[in-house]
Amino acid sequence: MVDVRDGRIGRLAWRLPYLAERVGDGAARRVAHLVGRVEGARPGGVQRVALRVSPRLAQQNPGLTKISPDWAVDEVDVRRQGVRLRLDLRDNLQAVLYYAGRYEPATARFLAGELRAGDVFLDVGANIGVHTLGAALRMRDLSSGRVIAFEPADDALAKLQQAAERNGLGELIETVQAALGDSTRDAVLRADSRYDVADTGVRSLVGDGEVVQQVPVVRLDDWSRAHDLTRLDVMKLDVEGSELAVLRGAAHTMTRLRPRAVLVEDKREDQRRELYAVLDRLGYRPHGQLLDHNRLFRRDRSPEPTPQGHAGG
């Protein structure tokens, strides 16, 4: 459980950015990054920084000094987690990465240790590519491998592609501008009404906020057949509530290629039982601890035969 109170030293440290604000928002932002980076290196520190950043959570955590949204800018060049990035601090994910110095560190460590030479890694809901880029760095170190990233949003995908080229990783990453689901269709990508429309990390096909754009939805089974996908080793799935639909549309691919590890965002109690049941039918069981809200599933047994006409492919 993350401590949501600042101790004496913490209160003093987080006063410094507000003192620097007298010079300007830029000075405050830079000082907050220095303080946040120290905190982010400690156990639970990234989550504490996330609680400081999110306006939605401000009233729930009165014991933590907040990071002012007035310090946010839409472009700041940084180096984080081994790659150069251009971040938009109006987005909570990118703000956490800026201030804490890292994002989802347990997931990043897992991928660095799990990926092997020649692996194919699939990042579904890649956003700006934090884990896509990290996986590509690992593949480059191993001298072989492939990263496939699905991301439907224009702005998030552009950041991913720009970062891939900027860091010399473009040849290792294949990007697909589409959302995955259980049917082929056009859909509306929406913001979350609780956040700024620029917050890319909370957009979804089931959101209740402003319309961001129209996006194509495809099944992984159809895409993998059309693109002759013959190998899939590790899969990460983070699509803000559409995980079940993605898995249903990927059943044949997962049965055929049998990735050894599947990471699925597991924050929704109302979907948890059905999510686990779908993965169980595909031959996957939860394994180990939760990694930054991502549950690790590994192959446990031979999957049940896919019902005729269900998964296609």
Rank of each mutant, 00 (worst) to 15 (best):
M1L: 09
G7Q: 02
R8A: 12
I9L: 13
G10D: 09
R11T: 10
R11D: 11
A13C: 04
A13E: 11
P17C: 03
Y18R: 13
L19K: 06
A20V: 01
A20D: 02
E21P: 04
V23R: 00
G26I: 06
A28V: 00
R29M: 05
G36W: 02
R37Q: 11
R37D: 10
A41V: 09
P43Y: 02
G44P: 12
G44M: 09
Q47R: 13
Q47T: 15
V49M: 05
V49Y: 04
S54L: 10
P55E: 09
A58G: 10
Q59P: 10
Q60T: 09
S68W: 08
P69D: 09
D70Q: 14
W71M: 02
V73E: 01
E75Y: 13
V76L: 01
R79E: 15
R79N: 15
Q81T: 05
G82F: 05
G82T: 10
G82R: 04
L85I: 06
L87W: 07
L89Q: 04
L97W: 06
Y98I: 00
A100Y: 09
R102A: 11
A108T: 14
L111K: 14
L111A: 04
A112S: 08
D119R: 12
D119Q: 12
G125N: 03
A126W: 04
A126Y: 10
N127Y: 01
G129M: 02
A135T: 13
L137Q: 14
R138S: 11
M139Y: 12
G145V: 10
I148Y: 00
I148G: 07
P152L: 04
A153H: 02
D154M: 06
A156V: 08
A158H: 12
Q161R: 08
A164F: 03
N167M: 05
E171A: 07
A179E: 01
D182L: 00
T184V: 14
T184I: 09
R185G: 04
R190H: 00
A191R: 07
R194H: 14
Y195D: 12
V197R: 07
A198E: 11
T200Y: 15
S204A: 05
L205K: 01
G207K: 01
G209D: 06
W223E: 00
V234I: 13
L237I: 09
E240Y: 14
E243V: 04
E243Y: 01
L244W: 11
R248L: 12
M254W: 13
T255F: 10
R256H: 02
R256V: 03
R260W: 13
R260L: 09
A261K: 07
L263I: 14
L263T: 09
E274C: 12
Y276T: 13
V278R: 15
G283T: 08
R285Q: 13
P286F: 11
Q289D: 13
L290R: 00
D292A: 00
D292P: 05
D292G: 06
H293G: 07
R299G: 10
E304K: 11
T306F: 11
A311T: 07
G312P: 00
